[in-house]
């Protein structure tokens, strides 16, 4: 049944039915665990953004302006991507739990690892070659 049609067996709103179609409500403990994992990813993205702000605000004498702005934008963009990815992952895990399917692989984990490594390598290279 399409999500926009009313379903007497599913009293949830249109958006909830479209976002998390079918299946059964998971155990509230699992839903809360998924929520805490989502929040942990959001805090990670906020920490990356705070790092981007700090590079631009506190490292004025250390870096060339172009490098400083590049690293700041990289960290801010990574933070934004991770926050969006955290929501996609929350939806993916919630859908899997509704259908008692295996949980999806976290694609944001390699994104965080790669982005963090690239940012750290740029900062290290700049400091070493100064």
């Amino acid at each position: 049944m399409p999500a926009w049609q009313k379903n007497p067996n599913d009293p949830r709103g249109l958006a909830a039915r479209a976002l998390l179609p079918g299946g059964a409500e998971p155990d509230p403990r699992l839903t809360l665990a998924n929520e805490r994992t989502f929040l942990a990813w959001i805090r990670t993205s906020l920490a990356l953004m705070a790092g981007g702000i700090a590079v631009e605000a506190f490292a004025i004498e250390i870096f060339e302006p172009a490098v400083r702005e590049g690293v700041a934008i990289l960290l801010l963009a990574l933070g934004m991507l991770l926050s969006g990815g955290a929501f996609v992952r929350w939806v993916g895990v919630e859908r899997a739990m509704r259908h008692q399917a295996p949980l999806p692989i976290p694609l944001i984990a390699p994104l965080l690892a790669g982005g963090g490594a690239v940012s750290a390598a740029i900062v290290a290279a700049v400091i070493l070659t100064r």
């Binding site: 909830a16 998390l20 509230p28 959001i42 934004m80 926050s83 969006g84 939806v91």
Partner: peptide, 17 residues
């Protein structure tokens, strides 16, 4: 009972973005 809520999380992601 189920407790799945999406709107607060979507708002938080929109704010961070």
């Amino acid at each position: 009972t189920g407790i799945t809520r999406w709107s607060g999380k979507a708002s938080l992601v929109a704010l961070v973005t």
